[in-house]
Design a protein around this nucleic acid. Sequence first.
DNA 1: GTCGCTCTTGAAAACGTTTTCAGCGGCAGA
DNA 2: TCTGCCGCTGAAAACGTTTTCAAGAGCGAC
Lengths: 343, 343
Amino acid sequence: MPLSQKATIHDVAHHARVSVSSVSRALNNYPHVSEALKTRVVEAAEELDYQPAFLAHSLRRGETNSIGFLVGSIANPVISTIYEAAAEALATNGYAVTLVSSRNQADLDSACLRLLASRQVSGLIVSSASESPEPARRFIQEANIPTVMLDRAPVEGERVFAVQSDHASSMRKAVRHLVANGHRHIGFIGGPQGFYPTQQRFRAYQEALAEAQIPARGELIRFAAFTEADAFAEALLLMRNRPLPTALIVAGNIILIGALGALQDRQLAVGRDIALVACDDIHLTQLYRPPVTAIRRDLNLLGKTAARLLLQGIANNGNRTDRVIKLPTQLVIRESSDFLREA
Amino acid sequence: MPLSQKATIHDVAHHARVSVSSVSRALNNYPHVSEALKTRVVEAAEELDYQPAFLAHSLRRGETNSIGFLVGSIANPVISTIYEAAAEALATNGYAVTLVSSRNQADLDSACLRLLASRQVSGLIVSSASESPEPARRFIQEANIPTVMLDRAPVEGERVFAVQSDHASSMRKAVRHLVANGHRHIGFIGGPQGFYPTQQRFRAYQEALAEAQIPARGELIRFAAFTEADAFAEALLLMRNRPLPTALIVAGNIILIGALGALQDRQLAVGRDIALVACDDIHLTQLYRPPVTAIRRDLNLLGKTAARLLLQGIANNGNRTDRVIKLPTQLVIRESSDFLREA
DNA sequence: GTCGCTCTTGAAAACGTTTTCAGCGGCAGA
DNA sequence: TCTGCCGCTGAAAACGTTTTCAAGAGCGAC
């Protein structure tokens, strides 16, 4: 009997000729409820197609069972893949997730967090990409909401956790790989300088260059905003310098797209004129001709781990085993870089 | 003075020495509130950093100001781009959106809708991709929640709207383009047969073939699930047939990825051995060598329009001007198909 | 002086749950 | 028989708002 108006717990109580409190107890499997009453209530609830009102339930319980997820841009395929994995894990645990995107705008993420907090979310997963993340970080510290920083700098706080990818180790491998193939002029295009993964990758790039005793050429290092157009422009600027770099590392999938466009524009043949290493192993890297060397990571695992950590953080208020988890990455060498530079 | 415990309206009332009802009226800009009282309340609220409790507010108001967004998979870059546009428009109107993905699982979307409805969302945007969408459609009809079907079959219902892309017209153009270049064996790989855009595209494909008086070869038509692996397999199967198709239309970005892999596997040179037309103009189509002819649409507009339609549907309970809006698409011809087939 | 109207404010009801408190009947132990 | 406990149930409080109802004050019109 599907009602047009939703049935409340009072209707069920009336229909089963018991009190509202008994209905609540019966449906929530509380102890001290007689079998007879329970079956009567369950039947009545079924007949009226009773669904507890979420708002009233949450208000009383003080718990929304929903998670706020803040991203820089969900249109980024890496982020959306991670999101899907995390959301699935959260959904199977009874949480719904409200997703908000700061659209990579520097000062918006703090407002987005405030919005999510005002929605009284039970937990937060933060993967925004602000250039200057300080206000957001402060807010997270003060809000006292269980939070997982996803591939971002950890934040001090009782209930704040972090899941990261080990960008550095694969980046060092990538540089060593290029050096071993005879490259000494290795360009680097990153995302914004304040962006955590870019920082990690850039530092590793510098360390590996130093380790190989290759003097860094500052003019071969550029940082782009999160748009293909900007990445394209920065790549063109980078290519103005002489001697030309013989290898290029692009730190991010948007950057890769812009850089590929620029290389095509300059008529530089990837895998022959210039070696290319990307930092996200998206479809493009595998389908491009020649296939592009890339740093791969298990995005599914990343999302699932973030969800698990957050759920733990929500449950065990204090028991913090791992505050920050670092997941492995691996360098997948393909034709774009797998050739010896002619001397 | 940021409190660790959140301030309630009672605290503000006490602090300003007025009643709770006055606080509510003052902060919500109700008429008949004296200036003196108003400023006193505003000051107190500011001092206590008072934020109205979302749950209580919504419970009383009977309005959550949140939108449920159901997708087949947010990892699909087309969907995530549409989502971002829609979510932005909704956010600027004060709505938060909770995103749930049915992960392209046939029977999950109905459950997802039920979940969203139980969260008492103010509106729904539905772009799931079930093979058999009937239960979900019935639910939407009965739920009486303002709903926008996004690039999906319209649903009868007082408060149900639809935004679509005009897949058919560009698909006809694509077939004519191929025919004009001398192709008579044109393969087609779509998504699942129950999937609305695939249906539209397939019908247009058939119509255009008939119009050119080209007999359809059923063995050149295949439908794949929403995975690259399946698209890859279907493409390989398609390529078993003799005579080989000289042109291939792939209806969807996941399909494109699988098909490109299969063509590479078979060592068929796109743009020479075989002409290729894709149905989503993603980065890959532009960066691939040769660039791939594709049907382009304004994803941003699609998302924005869906948001606008939904907001209208929520506001004017009855005034339904346009029930279904169809947005244009355009065929972008690139090297993958822009050559004459040798006779 | 009384009526009626408007402006302003507070008390209390309402939203739909969960949880606390209290009461009742039965039953074991003294 | 009385006391105390336990199992079960209902009444009512509570969650934090918004909205309704009522009432006091001020004031002009009769």
